[in-house]
Design a protein around this nucleic acid. Structure first.
Lengths: 227, 227, 227, 227
DNA sequence: TATGAATGAGATTTCATTCAT
DNA sequence: TATGAATGAAATCTCATTCAT
């Protein structure tokens, strides 16, 4: 996690004894449980401590407040997802754009889908707080990873490439989020995943076949000749 | 507002008199102001009433509670956006798929971009409450509008079409949301808009050229031959 | 009260209805009662509210916190005492120094002795908080009053006079405080008052008979010829 | 330490080993540091232990509680000051009253002024707790010392002498305290010291020249003929 | 209808102290 | 003896909501 945490959000103490590690783990787990069962409204430090089987005081030994706890938890989850995507993106031999498309879409959705329920719960919790920076860090991370992925597959200008990567990442992450956030749409995930790949391939393809060296937009207006 | 509101969330009275209308308007406006200035944390009913220049008692004359107030406000905003998109989508003569793509992307982003700050503020506020149904209603509405848009432009199976529409809508709304939610990414909106159109056209195009009568996915697995 | 209060110490709301005044009065009264019965340790906002017969929420409508409440209460008491002393000191016709001595000592002790118990309670409570400025304001006020009292009775240099006034005020207020703070010494007050007058007269006298135009100290060392 | 300590306030064990002594010393020192840095509000046992470089458990090995720790620390400081004054007062050959006055004032202020900051810090800390008895003990001690000082210098009735001594001690200690407690008045200490001597001499002198065998007050009313 | 004083459940957080290791 | 993780009672403070005027 590269984002710098304001003082209020930094964990309080580095556990020395092994017991501490278990306690922190229990608190994290309990937080997720509470979130899953009662939603963001039910997420109180007392409930977390109770569910974790520790006293409220113990919770505050490790985190200066609820926000810090959530910050750490969300950060950890995002880190995991970010790492997974990065790992996947590093294995880029001579891949076609279509393969790149599939690779990123699969890597991202798999990272999120690992535990759909937890992802959903954390999505909701994180908007409660000011976790802009975590989201921004994640976005930046994905951007780098995807940039590395595409750099080898085409030869566009850096600036253009950035716009493409940014847009693609936004679309993949944002689109996936819609599915996770709505009740009852998660069953559409397989179909959505396929369509997302299709869309990504089509997008990258069209960028690749046309001259990538030229920007397809002028003043933010698209002028690519319609097929 | 198409979403059914639970009893607790319905406005308390149908204001007919102009004075009432003005009061409600003031309350809505104040809510947005408070949200913009202090964020979701500062959004208290007392503060809203104060900023609106009415007493807390008056506020409760018009809304049974805080949630109802927010529900109504967010609903109104979504309604406006939904209507705008619907209106745009109704004007579909013999449009090409590419034109459809541009049409929807522009309609949606324009609807949101009308007041970026307010949209952002309400995004945040809405996650505080349980407004799943508002989001779902919006999604359904957009789905219908986009479905109507595409039905004329191609002749696929209804089921396949639904998947396409769902995915496209998710990607456009979700992707746009990423821009709105992050600090400092809104300046990328013009470029993003162009890329989103490009992507949408490419997506719809590839679906149109291949046989839309067959589903490109089987068991959620994409099998479209890679170009 | 001339001292500027930091934001955290300012009362929260100016009561509009008459009911409010009564509530505030009740809270002040309850604060004193709790202080008298349980000491500074027992002084909690909940206890105060309970004793005042109002809810804890009501207390916080008027004061942003315990400190602010105490600040206001102590300020009010000091104000009363300060005013009493000022009033007394204004009546200075052609008084002798001895009369001046008696006047100030009596005025100050009378102001404090009005309600010994309350004074003691507030002395203790005020050290809990950071009320330096209230004490400083009181001291400054007394200084002015006493300065006015003595200016007419002698003709020393302003600077010398300030030192004298400062020392005398310190001795009278500090000495009195010792009596009030200790358990079981309050019965000595009459005798102490007499001695304090004696001492004050002797002090002012000796300053008056010697040349007030010269400073009796040099480098902080006293060089007044011993009688 | 002459004051009797309630069971709860007695140090837990008599440390004989040098290591223990060092630990206790470190705890005392840390307490003062914390007090100086963060004030009474920041004075927590955990912080003290941390600053002292020992574990919280160790702190509780040596003191049964926070109060006991402070009690011991304040007691030690008062003891030092008391001893210093006593020592000074014992050296009374055939001293004049004026010399006595100077002696006590200097002895007391010097004892306090040794470390102004520490004195101030402990002043504040001591009001947090119930340390009436320490203050009373100190007062009694000073009373004895000053009584011994004055007994040789005049031949008044014991009862009258007690009143004089009590008043003088109150005035010297209380007056000095005013300077120490207020921010920014400590620079006036040299001038104040001189004035306090002046006042003390004048006071003792006037008592000495008039018939000390008679009480100058009757029913608490002063009737000493004004010079 | 409008007002705003009052409510109080409940959330956050602290910190003196204990006790298993 | 030393350690430090754990405790939990208790304090502070908020804010949605009610209701007498």
């Amino acid at each position: 996690m590269t984002a710098r945490s304001p003082a209020k959000l930094k964990p309080r103490k580095m556990p020395i004894q092994a017991r501490s590690q278990a306690t922190i783990e229990a608190i994290f787990e309990a937080t997720i449980q509470v979130l899953l069962q009662g939603g963001a409204r039910a997420l109180t430090t007392n409930r977390i401590a109770e569910k974790a089987g520790v006293s409220i005081g113990t919770l505050y030994q490790y985190f200066p407040g609820k926000e810090a706890l959530l910050y750490a938890l969300v950060g950890r989850h995002l880190d995991k997802a970010g790492e997974a995507v990065e790992r996947a993106c590093r294995v880029h031999g001579g891949m076609s754009l279509a393969d790149c498309a599939d690779l990123f879409v699969d890597a991202y959705i798999d990272a999120k889908a690992g535990d759909v329920a937890v992802s959903r719960a954390l999505y909701h919790a994180s908007t409660e707080l000011d976790m802009q920076d975590l989201g921004a860090a994640m976005l930046a991370r994905l951007h780098q990873a995807v940039r590395g992925l595409l750099e080898h597959a085409h030869g566009g200008q850096p600036e253009t490439l950035d716009t493409i990567v940014f847009s693609w990442v936004a679309v993949v992450t944002g689109g996936t989020r819609v599915l996770f956030e709505q009740d009852g749409t998660i069953e559409r995930l397989p179909a959505f995943r396929a369509q997302l790949k299709l869309m990504s391939r089509a997008y990258l393809d069209i960028l690749g076949t046309s001259d990538m060296r030229t920007d397809h937009t002028r003043n933010g207006e698209c002028y690519l000749a319609k097929t």
